[in-house]
Amino acid sequence: MTICTKLAAGFVALCGAAGMAAAETYDLDALRRAVEKYKDVEVALSEGYIPDPSGQCVHAATEGLPAEWGGMGVHYLHPGMLVLAPPGDRVDGMGTHTDFMKPAILLYEPQADGTMELVGIENLVFEAAWKAAGYEEAPMMNGRMWDYMADKPETSADEAHGFMPHYDQHIWLFRENPMGEAMPFNPNVTCDHHQM
């Protein structure tokens, strides 16, 4: 039972307004300023971000998608914001964090010299947790519904990149994306220099 169904009939309108909290609008320049400090990956690590436990650098080609779509890079996750579950076959969690001013995921592109370059940010909510919180539709950011990702057992690719079914939204703040700043893959991001 959601919080909305627990409220008295006179407050149902408030539940609709609360549901709208999942539709957020952000100024991209303000977001850049808010997360610029994470250009130094050591700052990200000191604030609790960790490299994706799978160790992978996500690229469309390795996901069975057209290589020209490009990559996402290496994801640095904040376990506290994602409320990650104990390790299992797939990354899972109970978080419903959607604040891009403090993103749950930072996206880095591995460089030839071994350093990591911040290229974007992301938020992710696991489908089960999102629905348990009373939301029926995906979150929205700047008028765009977040992407839904779930692995399809009938394919050899892992469409959810090792995660349980989830909604996510990428924002390319520090690397131009010709496909759009909110698209999941970026043709200008590569995994060519990734080392496991």
Rank of each mutant, 00 (worst) to 15 (best):
A30P: 07
A85V: 10
G64A: 11
H59E: 13
Y38I: 09
H78C: 07
L45Q: 03
Y76F: 15
D92I: 06
G48E: 13
A67G: 10
V41Q: 07
L106F: 06
L45P: 04
D99M: 02
S54M: 08
A34P: 00
V91G: 04
E47W: 04
G64H: 13
G55I: 05
P51N: 12
C57T: 00
S54V: 00
P87C: 07
G48V: 13
T62H: 13
D92C: 09
K37A: 14
Y38K: 03
L31F: 01
L77A: 04
H75W: 07
P87Y: 10
P103A: 01
P51Q: 10
M94I: 04
G93H: 02
H78S: 07
E36G: 08
D40F: 05
C57P: 01
Q56D: 15
D40W: 06
L45W: 12
L106C: 00
Y108M: 03
G55C: 03
R32A: 02
K39F: 05
P103L: 01
T96G: 03
G55Q: 02
R32I: 08
P66Y: 13
S46R: 15
L31S: 02
L107V: 08
H59D: 05
D29A: 15
A104N: 06
H78A: 09
G48S: 12
Y26L: 02
V43H: 06
D27Y: 06
P53M: 13
G95C: 08
I105W: 01
V43W: 04
M94Q: 12
Y108A: 04
R90A: 12
P53Q: 03
D40L: 06
V35W: 04
E47H: 08
R33N: 14
L82C: 05
V91C: 04
R32S: 03
V41M: 06
H78Q: 15
C57D: 04
I105A: 10
V74E: 14
M72V: 15
E109L: 03
D29G: 09
L84H: 07
D52I: 11
Y38V: 14
A104S: 15
V41A: 12
L82Y: 02
V41H: 05
A30C: 05
Y26A: 07
T98P: 03
S46N: 14
D89A: 13
Y76R: 04
T98L: 13
M72H: 10
G55V: 03
L31I: 05
M101G: 03
G95V: 01
H59P: 01
E42T: 01
K37C: 08
L31W: 00
P53S: 08
G93W: 07
H97E: 14
H75L: 14
H97F: 11
A85G: 11
T96A: 12
D52K: 04
E36D: 15
A44V: 08
C57R: 06
Y76G: 01
Y26H: 03
S54D: 12
M94H: 14
E68T: 12
S46K: 14
A44G: 11
Y76V: 01
Y76D: 01
E36Y: 09
T62W: 02
E42I: 07
W69P: 05
V91F: 05
G55S: 10
K102P: 02
T96N: 08
D40E: 13
G70K: 00
P103V: 04
L106E: 07
M72P: 01
I50P: 04
I105S: 08
